[in-house]
């Protein structure tokens, strides 16, 4: 049923690219477990219906799927991203759900790794504010038009974006200094003495 929704969306926006449907009829993302499949298969299976949306028309698509029948996707579960380093792209993922119609849909936006920018949907679903901040913090994707785009998980002076596949961890300077100083303090103390 939700796959029909994607077709409906494509009818209105020809520029979107729906996910290829899985072959099994009941691989909808919920319901009983799908039967075991052979290994060595190389096709990427999408268990949740959805579509790739160009960044330019994201805002309009979002407004339509929130407000208009038959979508009414009024609840945004999360915003996140996947780093496809080999292809040189990030995929920004939006999971949408309808509290009234009880159906769900994924929207994905491909952004280049060099200059990751995409419009912010905070004006459409207010709850995505922190999700976008988190994605910005961990992936470095800039959401244009976000009211308050700051780091949320890491400290402000953190280097790099940790969830990127090519991230290299670097101990902050002050921590190294503090730990070295602590080392020096306890040098030469015998056991039983307070360190």
């Amino acid at each position: 049923m939700s796959w029909g929704l994607v077709e409906e969306l494509q009818r209105r926006f020809p520029e979107i690219e729906p996910f290829p449907r899985p072959e099994e009829s009941h691989a909808e993302g919920h319901g009983p477990a799908a039967p075991a499949r052979g290994h060595g298969e190389t096709k990427f299976t999408h268990h949740v219906p959805g579509a790739w949306v160009p960044a330019a028309s994201l805002l309009e698509v979002c407004r339509v799927v929130r407000d208009e029948a038959p979508f009414h996707l009024d609840y945004c579960s999360f915003v996140s991203a996947v780093d496809w380093m080999a292809d040189g792209t990030f995929e920004v993922v939006y999971h949408l759900y309808s509290m009234t119609e009880r159906h769900q849909m994924l929207l994905k936006v491909r952004v280049p790794r060099q200059s990751p920018r995409t419009p912010s949907v905070t004006g459409i679903w207010g709850g995505t504010n922190w999700h976008e901040r988190e994605t910005y913090d961990l992936f470095g994707i800039v959401f244009e038009g976000h009211p308050d785009l700051r780091r949320i998980m890491m400290t402000e002076d953190w280097h790099g974006h940790p969830l990127r596949k090519d991230y290299v961890y670097e101990e902050p300077r002050w921590l190294v200094d503090l730990a070295t100083q602590r080392q020096r303090e306890i040098e030469g103390l015998g056991l039983g003495e307070r360190a």
Partner: peptide, 16 residues
């Protein structure tokens, strides 16, 4: 594989 957790609190305070 962790980037955010301190590897031991004794790096910052002495532990008894």
């Amino acid at each position: 594989d962790n980037y955010s957790i301190l590897k031991g609190i004794d790096q910052v305070v002495p532990v008894d």
